[in-house]
């Protein structure tokens, strides 16, 4: 297992979800990555154009479209889309929501090529208020 963000000791309320990949994860070639790239465009178009019209509605973190985008990039177009579909089905009134990261996948990127959505979906949580106030 490898991780791209440093671990921190945090209170229970804020669990970090660092981006993790499975052992033996590889970079994908152009052909292998093509379907996920295409589906990724569709999702990004949705996130850019349709999603802003109704504001924040998701009870999960990351939101369903962000989850879908990462899943498609890390798991491939078919498995990623199915995972996103399953996620949407889980978004109902008898589900509490919360933090629900995409499970580890088999794909890594060369330095600087990793999609920004992965960084957005696994933010580093800054330390609590008291600590930051002391910094000032």
């Amino acid at each position: 297992m490898q991780s791209n963000s440093e671990h921190q000791d945090l209170p229970d309320s804020a669990q970090p979800s660092p981006f993790i990949v499975k052992d033996g994860a590889k970079q994908w070639g152009f052909i292998r990555a093509l379907p996920s790239t295409v589906v990724g465009w569709l999702l990004r178009a949705y996130r850019r154009i349709i999603s802003p019209t109704y504001g924040d509605v998701c009870k999960f973190f990351p939101t369903c479209s962000a989850y879908g985008l990462e899943a498609v990039y890390t798991q491939g177009a078919i498995k990623g889309s199915l995972m996103a579909g399953w996620r949407i089905l889980r978004c109902h009134p008898w589900q509490d929501g919360g933090i629900d990261p995409v499970p580890p996948g088999n794909r890594i990127w060369p330095d600087g090529k990793q999609p920004f959505i992965i960084e957005l979906n696994h933010p580093v949580i800054p330390p609590d208020t008291e600590a930051t106030e002391e910094d000032k």
Binding site: S13, A14, Q15, S17, D56, V57, C58, K59, F60, F61, P62, C64, I88, L89, C91, H92, P93, Q95, D96, G97, G98, I99, E119, L120, N121, P123, V124, I125, P126
Partner: peptide, 30 residues
């Protein structure tokens, strides 16, 4: 953007701990 995301993440955890969410689930509409 990254801090906004971190805030959203902490907020969702808060909602989950209390078993609530201000956001209506999308499934009933679907």
């Amino acid at each position: 953007q990254l801090s906004r995301q971190a805030m959203a993440m902490e907020q969702q955890q808060l909602f989950k701990d209390r078993g609530t969410s201000p956001f209506a689930a999308c499934l009933p509409m679907l």
